[in-house]
Amino acid sequence: MKMLATFNVNGRDRDTVIAPHMTLADVLRDQLRLTGTKRACTGGNCGACTVLMDGVPVCSCIQLAVNARDRKIETVEGLAKPGGDLSALQEAFARNNAAQCGFCTSGMLMTAEALLRSNPRPTREEVKVAISGNICRCTGYVKIVDAIMEATAAAQEAAE
C-alpha cells in the first residue's frame, strides 16, 4: 500500500513515496536522507529521534509518517542559520563539549530548541525537566545543561 506523500521539512515541501507502516524517522532517514535524526531505541523511550512537529518535540520513531504529512516538521538539519553558520544553541553545544559521541545530540538540540522558543529564559531546573526524556550515555548531562543555559535569551543578552 504505497502512496505519494508530501512532507514539509525545515520549511521545504518534499515529495516521496511512503507506505503507512513507515515511521517518520524511517522516512526522514531512509527516504529523504536526513540522517541527522537518530534511532536509538525505536520505542519512544530515549529522545534520540526527536523532531519538532508543529513546533513541539515528538519521537519520530513511533510517529507514523502518514500522520505527519500535513504538519510542519523540523529536524536538526534545519537548525543552522541560512548560510550555514551555527545557531546560538549549536554554538553553545560545541563550546561546552555537550556532544561527545553525538548520537543523542540531534534529539537534545531539538528538545532544547522547542524549550527555548516557548520559554526563552528557562531556569536550570526547567531545562532539566525539558530534557529529562532524552537519554545521553556519554556526557553525564552537565555540559548539556550548561550549553542550553548559555543559549538562553538571558545569557545571550548578558553576553552582548
Binding site: V76, L86, Q90, F93
Partner: peptide
Amino acid sequence: PDVKKKVTGQAVYTED
C-alpha cells in the same frame, strides 16, 4: 575537530 559535525547532524554513523 568533529564537534561541528555532531551539532549539525552531519556526522556519519554506520546506519547513515
